[in-house]
Design a protein around this nucleic acid. Structure first.
Length: 443
RNA sequence: GCGGAUGUAGCUCAGUUGGUUAGAGCGCCGGGUUGUGGCUCCGGAGGUCGUGGGUUCAAUCCCCAUCAUUCGCCCCA
């Protein structure tokens, strides 16, 4: 019985061309967040199951995680998100860390889900968090970083929208304005989250079902609709418009406009589940008609660190999945043709490998060249074919003739143009190709 | 967990209204002689038609199941 060559369901193999793309994307992301002073951290892929249970969601653990017993009968779970882990790490050194603390990571995460477009079982997720800032500057910075991450790939503002809402405000609306209890609020939030996917009559019917008869008579459904219909803060009913959470939200929106982020909008229907977020939440949406959906988002979660028994630390962060980002970049045509890691393919003519060693060493060590040498002993045409297939731009031909004159043949695979040069000239030509924008100061 | 679509060579796909050795393009391998790929010419390998069962004289084609891929729903930390 032959073994299957497919990777595990919902997980991907990264062949060199795939890995090259991942390296490119992650490289841009790292560069971007590090420009804002964020430091990279990492942690084990395995966590005690209790870490995720603390959110009190047994159902999610049972159905959507990889959870099993280790040999010591301890229940462990493969990490499904980074937030509990990073909160654990911060809590562990709560007193000694330097705040504001800016951390990021690109962990691989596993969720036991049915794979579909943009959603896999194993994925990578850029996590960016700022700890220890309790004012809106934290939200401003984090949203700026999300924006900068997309701009790093030359995305334009009309390709995506940043939607922002205040969880604190919605909580006020639910509990004080509408007088919903916890269960009602949770159902309403779930419905609001899906509001744009159903027609209005359907939505009204379902909201109606959440209300008690008394609430219905008091017109709670209409009150809620009035709130939800607000396209801007000033559209909100007088009674709720004065709430303090809205002033903060408005400040944030103004600040974003101030820093040139003009595609950020208030969206009262934005919920992001009903988990650990405590105030501002935000989400980035693709505007492309074929991919018009939420890509990633985040928000403020001031309570998570305190679950580890230390004083609370205010936190704002976001998570960006690799599959959705890649979808976005592909759809908007933002992925460049990537060059292979190898600068030149060395074609050997005849039995000269031993004699060529000195030259190869010089090119590699002194010149910093990344060379792949054809040691197969095959005829030249086969060697060329390999170079072309690998997508390598240059071929360096080394035979007795070259070794004797110390002038090596450099062939451009695309144009077929050949030149003979000494080592230092070879190095500078190849470097120019590798890094076209850099200026070289050599003669 | 629920529903739809798909599953024929490495890839993209034809095809058989059920009937002798299943095809194309691209790719792959070899050759057109000795220091040169991409063009061209010649030759070649490669498929138990996703898997298992059923109907039939006969199944890649019809039926059932199963697995995989994919789209949507649920969910989405």
């Amino acid at each position: 019985m032959a073994l299957p060559t497919q990777p595990y369901k919902g997980a991907r193999d990264f062949y060199p061309e795939d890995k090259r793309l991942q390296k490119f994307i992650f490289g841009k992301l790292r560069q971007t967040v590090e420009a804002f002073g964020y430091e990279e951290y990492d942690a084990p892929i395995l966590e005690p199951t209790d870490l995720y249970l603390s959110k009190g969601n047994q159902e999610i653990i049972d159905e959507q995680t990889y959870t099993f017993k280790d040999r010591g009968d301890r229940s462990v779970t493969i990490r499904t998100e980074m937030t509990p882990t990073v909160s654990r790490m911060v809590a562990g050194r709560r007193q000694e860390l330097a705040y504001p603390l800016r951390w990021y990571s690109i962990p691989n995460l596993w969720r036991y889900e049915r794979p579909q477009r943009g959603r896999l079982r194993e994925f990578w997720q850029l996590n960016v968090d700022i700890f220890g800032v309790d004012n809106m500057n934290a939200e401003l910075e984090v949203i700026q970083i999300m924006d900068a991450c997309l701009k790093a790939f030359h995305a334009k503002h009309d390709m995506y929208t940043i939607r922002i809402n205040s969880r604190e405000f919605m909580s006020y609306v639910m509990h004080w304005y509408l007088e919903f209890d916890e269960v009602q609020a949770a159902s309403a939030v779930r419905l609001i989250d899906r509001m744009h996917k159903m027609d209005r009559a359907d939505f009204i019917t379902q909201i109606d079902g959440v209300c008690t008869p008394t609430q219905r008579e008091e017109g709670v459904v209409e009150k809620l609709l009035d709130v939800l219909d607000a396209k801007r803060i000033s559209d909100l009913p007088q009674l709720v418009r004065e709430h303090s959470s809205l002033a903060k939200l408005q400040t944030l929106l103004d600040s974003l406009t101030g820093v040139g982020i003009t595609n950020a909008v208030f969206d009262i229907t934005l919920m992001r589940g009903f988990d650990y977020y405590t105030d501002i939440v935000f989400e980035v949406f693709d505007t492309h008609p074929e991919n018009n959906r939420s890509m990633f988002g985040g928000g403020r979660y001031d309570g998570m660190v305190a679950m580890f028994g230390v004083e609370p630390v205010p936190t704002v962060g976001f998570g960006m999945g690799d599959a959705t980002l890649q979808n976005f970049l592909e759809l908007h045509n933002l992925l460049p043709q990537l060059k292979p890691e190898t600068d030149a393919y060395v074609v050997l003519v005849g039995d000269v490998y031993d004699k060529a060693q000195r030259v190869l060493k010089e090119l590699r060590q002194d010149g910093g060249m990344r060379l792949s040498v054809d040691i197969s002993g095959r005829k030249m045409d086969k060697q060329f074919k390999t170079a072309e297939k690998k997508g390598i731009h240059y071929v360096i031909i080394i035979g007795d003739d070259e070794l004797e004159k110390q002038q090596y043949t450099l062939r451009n695979i695309q144009t077929g143009v050949e030149e003979k040069h000494g080592i230092s000239r070879l190095v500078s030509i190849i470097e120019d190709y590798r890094n076209p924008s850099a200026l070289h100061d050599r003669d």
